[in-house]
């Protein structure tokens, strides 16, 4: 499995190309599924085990400050997975903040005005957050690409202004003094569990027949329609799924911060998940998680450099995208499953 790569500089690079070959173990685990040793079983089992182990162990060993960073990274991981999911159904959303904010406010309202406990306000916030956003976006489901994106971008900004102008739901002050989680462990392990459920749930969903239909809508919606499937109904379902898990994040953060206000609709929640998903690698969900757990801590590290923080952060984003345009996860996965070697290309004449 060693890579034999002739040194590039010396050996007259006349004509050569990189040949990529699936490792035998990869082929065996893909199609034939004949695993013959513990080593091969580990090859299959280790990658999905990494996020599980990390999310279980990290809360135990990190200091309090970095626990909060972990929490924030987990939230962005879920938002990014939701974005990735919607994008793979052909709905490019620039407004994850809409789902997040609506979920946050629903939970805040249930807590503040009705006094519901946390274990009710979060599920209800998730459910109604998803429903409200789906209904709001129903009229634009027919729009594709940039038009859908524009509407999703505008809606959260509009909500922010409405709350500011009318002073409803606490206005610019927001709703404060909301119930918190009983203890920080529940906080951390709840979001960790949700990250894992979303990650493995989405990965499984998209390889099921239902997921193929969803992807089909993105690739060729006319063909899906002529198969007798109502694409708007499927898009609405996808929107609800994607919206609800973002709404969960909103409702969750409401209780973590014991506060909900206009920042819940901030542009950060729309833009950062996209950067995360793109840097991590789109279409895999694991890429979104990887991206979030790189970018959010990176942003924290850069706090130390003061005013240059944003510049360095932006530069590193550019760096990732230029150097690994396919996304980090795609790159790592390729290295894991395939070995590469340089082979000479015979001249054609």
């Amino acid at each position: 499995m060693q890579q034999t790569m002739p040194t590039a500089a010396g050996a007259a690079p006349a004509r050569r190309r990189k040949e990529r070959i699936d490792r035998g173990i990869k082929a065996r685990s893909d199609d034939v599924f004949a695993l013959t040793s513990y080593r091969e079983m580990l090859y299959v089992a280790i990658p999905p085990a990494i996020p599980v182990v990390l999310l279980l162990v990290l809360p135990l060993i990190l200091p309090i400050y970095w626990q909060k960073v972990l929490l924030s990274a987990a939230v962005f991981a879920v938002l990014a997975m939701s974005w990735d999911f919607l994008a793979s159904v052909g709905m490019v959303s620039l407004g994850q903040a809409l789902f997040f904010g609506v979920g946050a406010y629903v939970a805040g309202i249930l807590d503040h005005y009705l006094g519901l406990p946390v274990w009710l306000s979060i599920p209800l916030g998730t459910l109604f957050g998803g429903l409200i956003c789906t209904v709001l976006l129903l009229p634009v489901l027919r729009l594709r690409g940039i038009y859908f994106a524009m509407v999703t971008l505008v809606l959260p900004l509009m909500f922010e202004r409405i709350i500011e102008a009318t002073g409803l739901l606490g206005g610019t002050e927001g709703l404060t003094g909301l119930t918190s989680f009983p203890n920080p462990w529940i906080e951390l392990y709840l979001i960790g569990t949700v990250v894992l459920l979303t990650l493995f749930g989405f990965r499984r969903l998209m390889t099921s027949d239902y997921g193929l239909v969803l992807k089909g809508i993105r690739d060729n919606d006319r063909s899906v329609m002529s198969a007798g499937l109502n694409i708007y109904w499927y898009k609405a379902q996808a929107l609800f799924i994607g919206g609800a898990i973002c709404a969960f994040c909103g409702a969750y953060m409401t209780h973590v911060q014991m506060f909900v206000g206009m920042p819940a609709f901030a542009l950060d929640y729309s833009i950062l998940p996209i950067a995360t998903a793109v840097v991590g690698g789109m279409g895999t969900f694991a890429g979104s998680v990887l991206g979030a757990f790189l970018l959010v801590p990176l942003s924290e590290f850069l706090r130390g450099v003061g005013g240059w923080r944003t510049v360095l952060y932006a530069l590193s984003l550019v760096g990732f995208i230029v150097l690994l345009p396919e996304g980090i996860f795609h790159y790592v996965r390729r290295k894991y499953h395939q070995f590469e070697r340089w082979v000479g290309v015979e001249a054609s004449s």
């Binding site: 027949d209 239902y210 193929l212 239909v213 089909g216 063909s223 198969a227 007798g228 499937l229």
Partner: peptide, 9 residues
């Protein structure tokens, strides 16, 4: 063919 086979018809 999974997509047409998914059809309610």
């Amino acid at each position: 063919l999974v997509i047409p086979l998914f059809s309610p018809r």
